[in-house]
Design a binder for these strands. Structure first.
Ligand SMILES: NC(=O)c1ccc[n+]([C@@H]2O[C@H](COP(=O)([O-])OP(=O)(O)OC[C@H]3O[C@@H](n4cnc5c(N)ncnc54)[C@H](O)[C@@H]3O)[C@@H](O)[C@H]2O)c1
Ligand SMILES: NC(=O)c1ccc[n+]([C@@H]2O[C@H](COP(=O)([O-])OP(=O)(O)OC[C@H]3O[C@@H](n4cnc5c(N)ncnc54)[C@H](O)[C@@H]3O)[C@@H](O)[C@H]2O)c1
Lengths: 219, 219
DNA sequence: GGGTGCTTGTGAAATCCTTCACAAGCTACT
DNA sequence: AGTAGCTTGTGAAGGATTTCACAAGCACCC
């Protein structure tokens, strides 16, 4: 054991790849649980997550001891622990900015809700879209954004506006108090310190694939 | 200079994070070029890409010397070099499997085309969707998949089918010769050696944000 | 033509992440 | 109760990536 006298919280600093893997473990465990399994070994989790058993154990050991030696991990227990670690023991209200093709698809995506995220508002500048219904949520005018964020206190915003409008949309949601943003526009945004911005960039994903195909030379 | 007598190709092995950053540089450079700038320094690129100037220079130095000391990098030259490195000096035909909300949004996404990827086919099992047009491409029956892949020789497939159907869809496109896949279903897939599968997982992205918010304790 | 100010390219150091290897611990079975 | 067979948890080693720091090079100006 280390000398933890100066760190009251048990968590020091977890790298993003680790958090991504934890999320992957959680997703597989939910399916595994639905199949009726009671326990799982680090090796099985590793195969599902595309990593190694040692990596799985290391990842989990950052947060405590969840397994039983000789047996493995209790599936339900591990799900609960991972949910708590990831901050999913509460539901997260989310706003979507931009009700175009991608914004609408996301608003109607049920996977959001089953993972603890609730779309509480979706906003668009186009008057012809305002007032339409998407999966129970009504599209509202973008002028309502600040007031709604103050009232509904979502902590995450998803940006689905055109690239030219993305930085302005980010500035607005940040100004309204949002500190975590998922950006679908293919623009790199600058955010103030303390605001986490993650980008989902289709072009980058395809380019990584193109690179892999171009350089598939060896083993 | 190193001793390269045993490596005919100048590229040894580039980590995926590096490729991702290169893709980001390229995207910013295209916008920077459109604004009429002639040159850019590693520091400017770093700020846009959320990294450091040393990182930018290291990333580029894997592939050669593209800059001029005291001046920076020629924007157009660097764009051309990055395109070649990433394998974007040719166009990539792509097939989409699943013409639902996400598949349709992607098929109509113009950003695909402007980055060198052409949607040459989109497939669905639902007879009511087959025959509809999306951005100039007609939805075809999923039975046409193998024949079309043989005829059109796309090398990348994008999976937009429900989670239960994703592994089967992967197996089919791989069987038909595809070796690079972008998966939107929230399922972890197993692919044979030599096939690159990348997953875009909304739940994971949001969970990383939730984790960041939950542990936003320290800078 | 020499000096000044910037910026690149790159070894070396530092940091971060992954893999290895094994003692410790649990269960089940004889 | 003792033993056999797995599987976890974790220091230590190993690799990989990032950061540091600085010499070398170019342009512009006086
Ligand atoms: N369609 C895709 O598959 C896809 C894929 C990846 C990324 N993207 C990106 O996602 C973004 C949206 O794409 P899309 O295909 O949904 O485009 P879209 O044109 O269908 O939708 C954009 C919507 O944003 C609205 N809008 C514009 N400015 C706004 C503002 N300031 N505030 C609120 N709403 C605003 C528009 O009225 C429109 O309804 C783009 O940046 C695009 O590059 C799209
Ligand atoms: N909608 C979103 O915003 C969103 C976001 C992230 C991930 N996803 C994932 O993307 C996938 C598709 O989501 P969606 O919202 O577009 O669902 P959807 O139901 O609108 O579309 C799925 C489509 O796939 C077709 N399909 C089913 N089996 C098929 C097969 N074997 N071959 C070809 N086509 C087949 C269906 O007919 C349907 O048209 C799902 O796995 C979902 O979890 C969706």
């Amino acid at each position: 054991m280390k000398d933890f006298t100066s760190t009251p919280s048990p968590v020091k600093h977890i790298a993003e790849p680790t958090v991504r893997r934890l999320s992957g473990y959680l997703r597989f465990l939910e399916a595994f649980d639905a199949e009726g399994h009671e326990t799982i070994s680090s090796g099985e989790l590793a195969r599902a997550g595309g990593t190694t058993s040692a990596q799985v154990r290391k990842d989990l050991s950052f947060f405590g001891s969840f397994g039983k030696r000789g047996l493995g991990y209790g599936v339900k227990d591990l799900i609960a622990s991972l949910r708590e670690i990831l901050g999913l023991d509460t539901r997260w209200p989310v706003v979507i900015v931009g009700a175009g093709k991608i914004g609408a698809a996301l608003a109607q995506y049920r996977g959001f809700g089953t993972h603890g995220f609730d779309v509480v508002g979706i906003y668009d500048t186009d008057p012809s879209r305002v007032g339409t219904h998407l999966n129970g949520v009504t599209v509202r005018a973008d002028g309502d954004l600040e007031g709604d964020i103050a009232a509904l206190t979502p902590r995450i915003a998803v940006l689905c506006v055109p690239g030219e409008a993305a930085q302005a949309a980010l500035d607005r949601v940040v100004g309204a108090g949002i500190r975590a943003v998922l950006n679908f526009a293919p623009t790199s945004l600058v955010a103030p310190e303390g605001v986490t911005v993650r980008a989902v960039n289709m072009a980058t994903e395809l380019e990584v694939l193109a690179y892999a195909l171009t350089n598939e030379s060896r083993d």
